[in-house]
Amino acid sequence: MQSGGDFVDLLRQSGYRFPGENLGDVQSERDLPFEPTDATTILAFQYADGVLVAGDRRATAGNMVLYDRADKVIDLDAYSVMAISGSPSIAFEIARILEHAFQYYRRRLLQEMSLQAKLRRLSLLIKDNLPLAMQGIGAVIPIFATYDQADARGKIYFYDALGAQFESADFTTTGSGSPAIRGAMYYLNRWGGRRFVEMDRDAAIGHALQLLDTASEYDSATGRYERSADIFPSVKTITASGLAEIETEALRELYVQYVDGEEAGRA
């Protein structure tokens, strides 16, 4: 007997097809090698209270800057976010499906979807997107971050373009700016005096802002603090009490302190 908690099944009954399912035979104009588009920088790490996820706000097309207010850290429910690098269209579609799928499951079956099931749902959607990913126009490589109530700790998972999922022990970063900071994150975490997991909220946010600034120094597709429009990167924390978006005023204070000011000289 069918339990009826699968939101994707409900969508299919109403005629919905995931973009990748219908476009399997579309070819891009040139015969491009498989090369995921991932012009952005996303990072996530464990800190003292849970998990921090941060991303820059820039959306690009080639060498053009399209938009400086893109939010790439998307809320899925009260305890989880998906941070996206890759094709925004497909990524937003996946986030929208998941957001509804988690809620639908809870309401329909009267129980919360387990963490393992949430990870699996995301993985399946990435697999469904394979045809678009292989054409180099629709790959999505997300980070999934959540707070696991049962384990009483934050958890970070990253995916490859085919949907395989890996849990990150301490930190991870994806996107075109990630090579510029992956080594810096390792260095900070190992010899920076304090590991990420020992940092309090302010220090964690301050370091995330420093790292995104570093990425934007070397990667043209990663935006930094936009002075003229006063736009900061998106920074979210997930703790035992749930998901919180860090407000602009708090970011401004920590930006002054960590990126421009007195803490800037030391890690």
């Binding site: 939101f7 409900l10 509804h100 639908y104 309401r107 329909r108």
Partner: peptide, 12 residues
């Protein structure tokens, strides 16, 4: 269940 299905289809 009918109400939930309908709401989520429209919502999505």
């Amino acid at each position: 269940q009918a109400a939930i299905d309908m709401a989520h289809s429209i919502g999505f």
